[in-house]
């Protein structure tokens, strides 16, 4: 089999804020169509790394490319090829379902016809057709989360970054959400996800665990559990973070 294409390549990423080293020589690759779990304790440097990969911040040093484009010189192309969803902000509460979809389609330069088509197929897939004109603040959290994810995929990005996408969601919706992630990954989209739910870490193809700005471990969940003689990813995580 041909070696899979690496959609994210990070080499020696360093980000400093004054004396503080938020990212200390991170090096890793993410393969096309992979679900890559990006775990770490609070303040370990996850958010910083995601912001750099999304082209929001410049790194202090290191070489990086996302979707084949260079982080320094081709930021616009990087942004065009990624989707982003965070738990804190994703949809406008005071716009309707349809207006939100239209807005995101618009900022990615989709044609009106294309937006309408995609909006309908999206609402149909999520069973949101009846909620088309409902304000986001009036629909349940689980729907919001699923809609936010779909909207992040509206412009057919090659990579989607999910920052704690399932925080506070009930266990059934959480699983439905992961089903959507699976489906996307199967259709070739690479998923880069952070979470505090350790059982979700096991749904990932590969997992990296950050401790104090470094990647302390990176492997499949199965291998990590064997390596650390643990039954669950939770134990792996706790061992790694506590041993620092």
């Amino acid at each position: 089999m041909r070696e899979p294409e690496n959609i994210i390549v990070v080499k020696d990423l360093v980000k400093k804020f004054g004396d503080f080293v938020a990212n200390d020589h991170l090096t890793f690759e993410v393969r096309k169509g992979e679900i890559f779990g990006f775990l770490g304790a609070n303040g370990a440097g996850k958010t910083t790394a995601i912001k750099i990969l999304c082209g929001l911040w410049y790194p202090t040093s290191g070489k990086m490319s996302v979707a084949g484009y260079d982080i320094y010189t081709q930021r616009e192309k990087v942004k065009r090829n990624i989707g982003y969803m965070s738990q804190k902000f994703s949809l406008y509460d005071d716009l309707t379902v349809f207006e939100n979809i239209r807005f995101y389609g618009g900022i990615y330069g989709l044609k009106k016809k294309a937006i309408n088509e995609r909006a309908w197929s999206l609402m149909k897939r999520l069973d949101l057709e009846d909620a088309r004109d409902k304000l986001i603040r009036d629909i349940p959290l689980g729907w919001k989360q699923k809609l936010a994810f779909s909207v992040a995929l509206l412009h057919n990005p090659k990579v989607v970054f999910l920052d704690e996408p399932t925080g506070g969601v009930d266990p059934i919706t959480r699983r439905q959400f992961w089903n959507m992630i699976y489906e996307s990954a199967r259709s070739g989209i690479t998923v880069f996800v952070t979470t505090h739910y350790m059982d979700e870490a096991e749904y990932c193809d590969r997992v990296s665990i950050m401790v104090d700005g470094r990647i302390a471990a990176l492997d499949t969940p199965e291998n990590l559990k064997q390596q650390f003689h643990s039954a669950t990813m939770n134990d792996v995580f706790i061992q790694l973070v506590r041993s620092k």
Binding site: G40, A41, N42, N234, F237, I238, V241
Partner: peptide, 10 residues
């Protein structure tokens, strides 16, 4: 414990 990592939660 919402939004807090597994170790801090424990």
């Amino acid at each position: 414990t919402t939004g807090v990592d597994a170790v801090s939660r424990r």
